[in-house]
Design a protein around this nucleic acid. Sequence first.
DNA 1: AACACGGGGTA
DNA 2: TACCCAGTGTT
Length: 319
Amino acid sequence: MMTAATATDEPTTHPTEGAALVDAVLGWYAEHARDLPWRAPGAGAWAVLVSEVMLQQTPVARVEPAWRAWMARWPTPADLAAARPAEVLRAWDRLGYPRRALRLQECARAIVAEHDGEVPADEAALLALPGIGAYTAAAVAAFAHGRRAVVLDTNVRRVLGRALEGRALPAPSLGRAERDRAAAYLPADAATSVRWNVGLMELGALVCTARAPRCDACPLLDACAWHAAGKPADEHAGRRRTQAWHGTDRQVRGRIMAHLRHHRQEWAAGEDLLVAGADGADPAALPDPGQPARALASLVGDGLVVADTGAHAGRFRLP
DNA sequence: AACACGGGGTA
DNA sequence: TACCCAGTGTT
């Protein structure tokens, strides 16, 4: 696949500088790679895909036990496709963003229906699956199938941004110029490109971290533009917004989902869910009394909660 | 381009 | 307390 950059004011490849960076990253990765289960030689494409979806915004430490239990229970796409969504959501537990769990099951069903139960290797085919975006499509193509792909997650963007451009942190949004630059540095050999991708991610996770980078342990120290410039501050600092959590609709949604995951009965009374969302207090006494009901309605809208429309209206359950 | 979307660990 | 984390889908 041709992924050449089209910028006219810069070369599209960086053979000398790029080769030195690649050697440094590959050498470091060979020495320091973590022994994660989805990297084991026997891990199949489905195992890799499941790990990548779980790792979307959830740290490795919390994903690992959930991934082991998940793969033991549903070792193939067909197994997950046949599961009850309520059990899928319970197994997802507290990994966060539970819509990912539903999309992962939709993804499994699409793989069964459209790809004979086999995880596709083509990046475009992967991108068409539910819950698979640009990052995950590239990651599965590379790590599950050994394909050459431009894998750009937050770690890779930070490492390349620092080493090549001297930026403390990547821009809030990924632009074409940044993607072209990453493509220009991707090794031509497929097997090498896979190790480059995973090596950059590992370097970003263990050494070139966002908060307190351990530059003394970095294999790219001598080549790093950010370090050479004296590690200037993040130029986008003023425009980044931290997401609120306490008192938000998201927190209330989480409480309702937690209640339903642990509820023994099939159906739960809406009143119980509203109280659960209000953290045990009377919803009417909240600063925003309508919040629990609004959160519950949004969960129903997302398909994470089902409302009984029959004779027992006012009762809810997991789908 | 901006938003909404969980939850917990760490400095 | 504030920030961060192997992003995705919608508006």
